[in-house]
Design a protein around this nucleic acid. Sequence first.
DNA 1: GGTTGCCATAGATAGGAAGTATTGGACGAT
DNA 2: ATCGTCCAATACTTCCTATCTATGGCAACC
Lengths: 317, 317
Amino acid sequence: MSVLIEFRHLKYILAVAETGNFTRAAERLFLAQPSLSAQIKDLEDTLGFPIFLRDRTGVYCTPAGEMIVSYAESALAEQTETVKAARAIYRGEIPILRLGFSCFVQPELLQSFRDAYARLFPDCQMQLSSGNHSHILHRLEEKSLDGALLPMPITGDDWVFEQIACSPLVVCMRTDDPLAEEIEIQPAELTERLTIFRDPEMHPAAHARLMNMLSEVKILPKVSSLAATPADIQFMVQAGCGLALMDQRTVLYPGLTGRPIAGIRWTVDTAFVHHNNAEHLALPILVRYLRKLGNGKPLKRPARRKHVKGLQLELLA
Amino acid sequence: MSVLIEFRHLKYILAVAETGNFTRAAERLFLAQPSLSAQIKDLEDTLGFPIFLRDRTGVYCTPAGEMIVSYAESALAEQTETVKAARAIYRGEIPILRLGFSCFVQPELLQSFRDAYARLFPDCQMQLSSGNHSHILHRLEEKSLDGALLPMPITGDDWVFEQIACSPLVVCMRTDDPLAEEIEIQPAELTERLTIFRDPEMHPAAHARLMNMLSEVKILPKVSSLAATPADIQFMVQAGCGLALMDQRTVLYPGLTGRPIAGIRWTVDTAFVHHNNAEHLALPILVRYLRKLGNGKPLKRPARRKHVKGLQLELLA
DNA sequence: GGTTGCCATAGATAGGAAGTATTGGACGAT
DNA sequence: ATCGTCCAATACTTCCTATCTATGGCAACC
């Protein structure tokens, strides 16, 4: 199917919708009124439905027209934003992206985020800082970080986030544990034995949610060991302090293994977050890209075989 | 500023990026190769930076080009989607939107959502169902609802949601309560007196989060009365069962009033949710629109003074 | 009944998108 | 080396169409 609408049309439509008047819209566009009328009419013909109703009292949108007008606004804004970012890339003006991440975010996930960033913003630098959930959020607030990868939930207003991963929770145990013989663990078998948890202070909302989910399936956890990192949790399991819940994708120490809980499909969700009024040029485009990756199918384009910088190439030539 | 890129360019760019070859891209576009080359070159000139690197071994994207290519994909897809939806509106083929909402969602919020929907999909019907959080989510899952307005947090994978409101929590009390004399309530004054809560079963995750937030500020609530609706909560406060937390925007019964808690800025967040693979045509466009409303400034276009249906008008004329 | 405001139509024109033919550069095979 | 192949760029022509000016039609307002 060919392109029905051009950006030119969107600009014209918007001018007409905003002025409610072909003549004034044409003036604003530095265009003769008949040219504008003709363009809109052509477009309406190819689309197969009218966008505007011309009426003695003025020009109004049809229902379908409202949708096109609303689309025109965002499509034009998006184009401007994209061109600005692309130009900044070309000029090497993208500032370093200061990315925070919780130590509970899987390394492969961090890497695939870095890959996505590198695909969108090649040759742009990224500075990593790890920390616990609340700490990272605080640094985002005070703008010493531009964005972060954090486990959900992310509570509070003034955050923009986009979920980028979701992975099952499993019970982490020693391989010599009797439960390791089973393929799935029954919830009842966990009561009393599930004792190792992430320190609630690291991420209060996630802890609360977990406790609640556990009580819903009648697992009564005995919170006795608190850990600040996944490595510490593994150490505690290894040391025999009890069982813990873990992201299935965690690479476990030798001597440890993971088992799903029967009938339960809890997940660890990770999101890319940035503050509402953070101003790093890459953020809106990054979020849009991550959203596309999440909803759509993977991109099927030939990979770049050569790695060449746009501007630098010219300067060296 | 004028339009730099046209959709035609995006289509061309995409073809070149996907084939990695101007000649084959031109074939795919039913275009002569020099025409394609010229168009891309023109675009690169107006943009001010190269999109592709022509190389003996093939054609590759520059860094800035990668961004444009990625944009081209989504922009073209979005246009197609929008035109499809607009055409469906014109033909009156938009099915009724079955919207669920929690009874804890404010009526004005529901109304402004209905307004937004009416603006995007004029003359399209909406069917409302209220219920509690878990119930609504379940109905979304089994596809007896298309979308819903629910208080956050919304846990679990396979939901698409967009936060649409955020409003402060206040303490709800009788106007003859001694605390009503104060402008702000101190957290310590709430211990023992905060006793009325939403039934945890209505929304387990929200209850858990609230309990956690309370304990963080050393308020130890005594959960003694459980209500299924805001009206029930108000009744209980009126009956003297204790104090409750409420959305500040709730229209209170006579004899009741709300007061903020000193030093605390908790909020009630509401989101529009739909299931990952719900197929109602309006959903992706609705989410995009809500997102725009949230991030951007309000639209400043003359309102439609007349309410006319596109198709019907022609048929009647 | 004249004037004004506004959109549509008619016809002319110029700009530019697309086409054809050709050149030039880089490999690879003989 | 030399020829053949592949591929993008250049040169030049053609034709479409976006734009222009001028005008017509229609309703509303003095």
